[in-house]
Simulated assay, not measured.
Amino acid sequence: MTATLQLRHARVRYGPLEALHGITLAAAGPGLTVLLGRNGSGRTTALRALAGTVPLSGGAVVWDGVDVTRVPAFERARRGLCLVPERRAVFGSLTVRENLELAAPAYDSALAAYPQLEPLLARRAGTLSGGEQRMLALSRALLARARVVLVDEPAQGMSPTVAARTYELLGSLDACVVMAEQRLPPVPHGRPALVYELRRGAVVFGGEAGEFQGRQAADRRRRRPGPSPSG
C-alpha cells in the first residue's frame, strides 16, 4: 500500500496541555485506516491535524510525499480532502436539499445511499435527529468524491442497520478513508485496513486490522479465569 497521508512526529498543544506527543502514522489510499481510542486518547486531534483544522506545534503532515503542514484547511479541502467532524457537520439553518446541493447539484446517489433522507429534503438540517444529521453529513462527503475522507465516529446515533450500511459505503470508496472510532468497526473483506490505537496522545499499536483483532483475542484468553481448584 502506498502511503497517501501521514503524520510524522506530530505534536499538538491546547494551551499548556499537549494532546499529541510526537505521533507517527500513515493512511493508505485507496484503503481504510482506523484511529482507535477512548475519549481523550488523541484520535480526534489526530484527525483534525490531518485536516489542518488544528495547527501542529511540532512534526509534519505529509500528503503524497509533499509537506502540507502549513497548507490551510480550506486549501487541503480544495485539493480533495473532506473532513466530517463529530459535531457541526451540517449547515443547520439550511434544508437537507440545500445541504446536498452545496456538495453537488445532482444528489441522486446520496439518496440512493441513504433513502431515509428523501422525505426530509424540505426539513432544516438543524431539526434532524443526531443519526439523520450523520447520514446527511456523510452523504455530502460521498457526493464530494474526495481523494481523502476523514470521519469522526461515522455511525454515531445511527441504528445498527444504518450503521452497517455506513461502514459498507465508506469501505467501498475509492479514496483514502480515515475513521476515528472507540471500537474497531466492521472491516470490508478484501480491503486493506490499518489500525492505530492511541492512548493519552501516543500510538500504542500500529498494524493490520487482522493483527489487532488477533491481539485482542489473545488478551481476552489471558484474562479468562482458569478452572477453580476442586475441594
Score class of each variant (00 low, 15 high):
T45F: 06
E153K: 12
A110W: 08
P55F: 08
A155T: 12
L81M: 14
V149F: 09
L169S: 07
L32F: 12
D174A: 15
G52C: 07
C176Y: 06
R221M: 15
L5W: 12
A137N: 08
R165I: 01
Q213H: 11
F205Y: 15
L150K: 00
A125F: 02
T127R: 05
E18P: 02
T33D: 01
V149L: 14
P30F: 05
I23F: 11
A27P: 01
V12Y: 11
A218Q: 14
D174H: 13
H21F: 07
H189C: 08
L56Y: 04
V96Y: 03
R78S: 00
A60L: 02
E153G: 06
R199C: 09
Q216P: 02
R223H: 13
L94S: 05
A113E: 11
F205M: 13
V34Y: 02
L198G: 08
G80P: 10
P30N: 07
V84W: 07
L94V: 00
R70C: 01
A19Y: 04
V71R: 14
R140Q: 12
V90S: 00
R222C: 06
L36G: 05
C82D: 11
Y114G: 03
Q182T: 13
L56E: 06
R191A: 12
E208Q: 15
G22M: 10
G214D: 10
L94D: 04
W63L: 09
H21P: 01
I23N: 09
L184N: 06
P72K: 12
R13D: 15
S93F: 07
A51Y: 08
G80H: 07
L50N: 05
A217Y: 09
N39E: 14
L169T: 04
V66N: 00
A193M: 09
P227D: 04
V204Y: 10
M158I: 06
F91Q: 03
L121Q: 03
P16I: 00
D219V: 01
V149C: 07
S129L: 09
G29N: 05
L25N: 03
P160H: 05
L56R: 00
G201M: 10
E211K: 14
G214M: 08
T95Y: 07
L32E: 11
A3L: 11
P192A: 14
G190K: 15
G207K: 14
M135E: 10
V149Y: 07
R38E: 13
A104T: 03
L100A: 06
Q182S: 13
G40M: 13
S129I: 10
A141N: 06
R191Y: 07
Y14K: 00
E86D: 12
P225I: 05
W63A: 05
A146Y: 07
T4H: 10
V204E: 14
C82A: 12
A77R: 13
V177R: 04
R124Q: 14
R191G: 05
L35M: 10
G131W: 02
A49N: 10
A155R: 01
M179S: 02
A60P: 04
Q213K: 15
V151P: 04
L83D: 08
A209P: 05
G206V: 01
